[in-house]
Nucleic acid binder design. Structure first.
Lengths: 212, 212
DNA sequence: TGTTGTGAAGGCGTTCACAGCC
DNA sequence: GGCTGTGAACGCCTTCACAACA
């Protein structure tokens, strides 16, 4: 396998990374279907992109295809897995133990991709101590210690909006490297910490706007 | 209140609509805090945008500010509510009755903004008949009829990936106008149907990429 | 022939900068 | 003086188009 490494200092856009996730998913399906090779055209068709876009996206990371043939499914899958960092384990801290957190916790896909939730915390006494599978819900007062001691690198914030920035501050000071925020509030984190936001209301509002 | 209506045929970008949602949230907070006016600078600071961007975004829909003063909080809130279509009720159909669907169902924010879930459907006999608040989970076999009879306009797909396209097809043929898809699969819908995707795995993969 | 890889062109969203107005 | 509204400049992402090559 050719090492998937950027040779240039070109900044890869967020859109490109998101599309890589899409290609990754399609390649998994193609593998299950027993396909050996795939063209940029097919990959585009099944992932909702365009052939040129597929080739351009991949070109940021190397030359993975064969002219006249296309891409080897197994090889490209491995390349993208490596590019996206899915070939390792990511220790995750889940803050908030509400319905959304529980849905995320029970979601099998994450664990399959290497995202392993190793702590669940909340500030509700009624929830603290609850067993969630092999974990017990802990008090959010222990957040910083838990993150440090278990060396958790990604924090998922699934708390009410009012608590989100405070939680983020504690995560950051404890050394968290990435934050996935579900609270509908703009968070401030230092530039070295990666931040992604998922705001369900924004998506519904986007639909509402389009339907008007 | 000046009517919020686009005078030009300029296509408003998706980014602009998403930012409007952010401004909307900040304005709500400002209102609670008793602020009467707000400048593009403050709005940008609190929503994670830039002053020029705020003004440009708003300019697509009208002229809502006063030079030298800024924007009236109450008025701008009403304008954006109208622009985003949050001044009406949207009847929503929730397909899939798993943990994620339940989290969405119990989320109070949606109802507050006018998104009212009026049907929950699943194909699991063990779930059909379950009471979810004032609703009962119905069989997905009745999907088309339910959408038509209750005149539901937005469908939320919270099913496994394998079922998603089939559900989307039924929703579309029953006359649904917008789809919010949580299944990790690219959906095909006719151009007249609005489609938004929320893919939690993509967000985690984006973090993973950034942390590598 | 078929398909990739990629420089160049194109298009679109963001930022600038300033005229206009309160 | 302060802040908005907006045409113009800018920069980035996407698309094109074709040379390279299996």
């Amino acid at each position: 396998m050719i090492s998937a490494r950027r040779t240039e200092e070109t900044r890869v856009s967020d859109s490109t990374v998101r599309r890589l996730s899409g290609y990754y998913r399609v390649l998994g399906e193609l593998l299950e279907q027993g396909e050996n090779t795939v063209s940029s055209y097919q990959l585009a068709l099944r992932s909702g992109s365009t052939p040129a876009q597929v080739r351009k996206d991949l070109s940021f990371f190397g030359q993975f295809g064969k002219r006249g043939t296309g891409y080897d499914v197994v090889q490209l899958l491995a390349e993208i897995r490596s590019i996206l960092g899915l070939d390792r384990r990511w220790k995750v801290c889940l803050v908030g133990a509400g319905n959304l957190a529980h849905a995320l916790f029970t979601h099998k896909e994450f664990e399959r991709e290497g995202f392993v939730i190793e702590a669940v915390l909340d500030n509700d006494p009624a929830k603290i101590g609850q067993r969630w599978s092999h974990l017990a819900v802990e008090t959010v007062e222990h957040l910083a210690r838990v993150v440090r001691e278990r060396q958790l690198v990604i924090g998922i914030i699934a708390t009410p909006a009012a608590a989100a920035q405070d939680v983020a501050d504690h995560l950051v000071s404890a050394g968290i490297q990435g934050v996935l925020n579900f609270a509908p509030r703009k968070l401030s984190v230092p530039p070295k910490v990666s931040l992604r936001n998922v705001n369900l209301a924004i998506e519904l509002e986007g639909l509402s706007f389009a339907l008007k």
